[in-house]
Write a protein that binds this DNA or RNA. Structure first.
Lengths: 331, 331
DNA sequence: TGCGTCAGGTTTACCGGTAACGTAGCCTAA
DNA sequence: TTAGGCTACGTTACCGGTAAACCTGACGCA
């Protein structure tokens, strides 16, 4: 790099401390000095060194780390976008990572990110390894756990209850007269949040005397094909289901495609419900019954909670972001 | 943070330089010393300080910056995923940003990232402001331009030709007997790569004596609704089109929805073609005619080119990643 | 016996900022 | 008249690593 504070200081005839103060918009210098310093800095093409600043004073870090389960999830892409818009506007930089729904991968990521002494962290989910929690304690930076709500967060939490999402959908389908429900999931048991939805769903059905009849949980990624073939497998094994709840909308759309291919009428012969609120689902010939999650709002709220804490304000400890069950025409 | 190199050094009875060498896997110490140091480091819960390392020696940075047009694009999510998988495996950290298809926002992002002295950078597109180019020169880190191929990259390039994508689709539709083609785009003229596809498309049609009849370019984001209403506007203004080429698959699916809603038979009354290869499109009742882009492969190739350069190897200057026109049943 | 070599270290200097404190000159009020 | 305070700076120390130079004792060998 061409120039540092010292170079500017010499060219402007002041000390580098004064340059530092001017460029950070502090106080304690005359207008004349400011103008001279700013002009010289511009002329020399000064690029500040955040490495040095953050190293010299932990106050100065503008680094925020964020870990999501998968980068290819459309839902998390919107969360990421919400976080990025809120943070970049305030001069923070975002470091990302994916944990592939594994607490161990999350721990490895936190370990890496911790060595950058970030100003704050955003994690997905409420379950972490003990070593992760210990690392977070050592880093001593504000932490926001998003996506799955917890009433006892490490620090702050922004999200909603996956269990309640499943329970609400269960109630809705019962009200529509469904009595023989199935479930199609993915990622085996790795996605604990999808698992929580299933548990809420099951609990409500069982309580109503119409317990879940069968489930098919694939090892694959939760995409269209997994939904298509998952439904095929489920129906082959257990005929007579009157509704199927899917892990997410991608899979539900796959299920709809299977039904269409086999001449199964939806919702007459079979109800189909998803979760998440993918944009594509809203433009299907029949509107998908699903739970819409306010992804961007979650990202924004998480970023704002973090920034509040960084500014020394208390920051909301738990922020509940409401989901919305959209009845649709497939359930 | 609890412990630093000095603490370990004292506890292990060696100098901190020796600790540094041991922990980085260097040479010049006995097995006995290594074991002692490693054990002490573990006991003290040592978390290395990359800030200090990268600051003290520019060699040590493991930071890679990546800027994409939009974080919510499904295509770029896969590119990001490809990059992240390749880099995180090698111990690099990814800092991301979005430029919203604006060269000025890209410049602002590069300016921010430059102050972190990254080991390497990945940018999207081949067009940058002069100030951006100058900043990149100053940073002196390897740069990979992805997505749109350029034969004279700043440093390295991984991608394909958007112009050729458009041209190829034009040729394909002509072969299928289409003579009155329209185009529906979005983002106004901001997306220069979409613009390039349109230009390739137009050039081929004009050469065949069947020039583009009309186009509708919306200001919106290129999603389903933009495709739906874009097609509506286009057909209202210019009846008698026999095929419409869309900015991307999301929009094309919106167009299909509009056609279905209005009883327009596809492909008999109207052909529809997209671009990008969204996963959802492949499971529609009729397979979408589109160009599939190997997104993850682009991310992986970009990361590999970067890492090669960082290791001192020459690194592929231009990597062409082939796209694939999928005929489908809608064109 | 003297000397070169090598393993296995240590010492020193430095990266570029920022916090904390020091100070000269001037103004003001008791 | 002078203590005290304010403005506009300058000085010093420090953050935690890494590169490069330097040291030292043991050993091999002529």
């Amino acid at each position: 790099m061409k120039a540092n504070l010292e170079d500017i200081a010499q060219a402007a005839g002041v000390s580098k401390m004064t340059v530092s103060r001017v460029l950070r918009g502090g106080t304690g210098f005359s207008d004349d000095t400011r103008d001279r310093v700013v002009k010289v800095a511009e002329r020399l093409g000064y690029v500040p060194n955040k490495l040095a600043a953050a190293f010299g004073s932990y106050q100065a870090s503008t680094l925020v780390g964020m870990c999501v389960p998968r980068l290819t999830s459309g839902l998390f892409a919107h969360v990421l976008d919400g976080v990025d818009r809120a943070l970049s506007r305030l001069g923070y930089q975002l470091m990302i990572g994916a944990n592939n729904h594994s607490m161990d991968e999350e721990e490895a990521w936190v370990r890496q990110i911790a060595s950058w002494r970030p100003a704050g962290l955003i994690l997905s989910g409420r379950n972490h390894t003990p070593a992760t929690v210990e690392l977070l304690r050592q880093v001593a930076a504000p932490v926001v756990e998003i996506w799955d709500l917890t009433t006892s967060p490490i620090d702050m939490s922004v999200g909603f209850s996956h269990y309640d999402c499943g329970a609400e959908m269960g109630q809705f389908l019962l009200r529509r007269g469904r009595r023989r429900a199935g479930y199609v999931g993915a990622l085996a048991r790795a996605d604990v949040m999808g698992q929580a939805r299933l548990e809420g769903f099951q609990a409500v059905l069982a309580q109503a005397g119409a317990p879940l009849v069968d489930r098919e949980v694939l090892l694959d990624m939760p995409g269209f094909y997994a939904g298509y073939y998952g439904l095929e497998t489920l129906l082959a094994r257990t005929p007579g289901l009157d509704v199927v709840y899917f892990h997410n909308d991608d899979m539900a759309v796959g299920g709809l495609a299977y039904a269409a291919a086999k001449g199964i009428r939806v919702p007459e012969d079979l109800g189909i419900a998803g979760w998440g609120g993918m944009e594509a689902a809203s433009i299907l010939p029949k509107r998908l019954t699903t739970t819409v999650v306010p992804t961007t709002a979650i990202g924004k709220a998480a970023a704002e909670a973090l920034v509040a804490r960084l500014k020394g304000e208390p920051g909301q400890e738990v922020t509940v972001v409401p989901t919305r069950l959209v009845p649709g025409e497939t359930g």
